[in-house]
């Protein structure tokens, strides 16, 4: 009895001590995963994911509280990058074949109130007070913040039209 207790105690103590020393010796700083994740997100702070800005989304991703497909403006490429960073397999089918969209202003409805102008996280809408606003296609992420802010429903999202340089073949069998 005594031998058994003693030997297991000694064994446990010795191994525990060894591991303790090893933990000191091999100590590694935890990675700054949140910052890395935030760098992958678009950074437009649009809030479509339901988290407070991209930093909040990155935190939620790191905690495993959000899927990698959380970012609608980022689309497939961001989801893939996040999945790679987190070492998980992304179920990209959840995203579907979301077509890139951009905002347009219907001139006959625009009253030049500048509300959309202020809501836009990327300064993609230009114009001034009492002037019709225009959208810069290159800067628009299609986040729809402006759509919600417009009092006259003059702002809408339309799919980005294909051009000869952006047209691509469809996936075979998915015509």
């Amino acid at each position: 009895m005594l031998a058994a207790v003693t030997s297991l105690t000694v064994l446990g103590a010795a191994l525990g001590l060894g591991l303790g020393i090893a933990a000191r010796r091999f100590h590694v700083e935890p990675e700054e995963i949140v910052a890395e994740l935030e760098a992958l997100l678009p950074g437009s702070q649009c809030g479509q994911c339901g988290f407070p800005g991209c930093a909040g989304a990155a935190q939620a991703l790191a905690d495993g509280k959000a899927p990698v497909t959380l970012c609608p403006p980022g689309g497939k490429s961001v989801a893939q990058a996040l999945a790679e960073k987190l070492g998980v397999s992304a179920d990209l089918s959840a995203l579907g074949e979301s077509v890139p969209m951009f905002a347009t202003v219907r001139e006959e409805l625009c009253i030049g109130c500048t509300k959309c102008f202020k809501a836009c996280p990327t300064d993609a809408i230009h114009g001034a007070v009492k002037q019709i606003h225009a959208v810069l296609k290159e800067a628009c992420t299609g986040c729809a913040k402006c759509v919600d802010s417009c009092p006259t429903e003059a702002v809408g999202l339309v799919p980005v039209p294909a051009t000869l340089t952006t047209w691509t073949w469809h996936k075979p069998g998915h015509a």
Binding site: G18, L19, A22, A23, R25, F26, H27, V28
Partner: peptide, 9 residues
């Protein structure tokens, strides 16, 4: 445990 720590480092 030991191997894990060693590899991590």
């Amino acid at each position: 445990q030991f191997v894990e720590m060693a590899i991590k480092k």
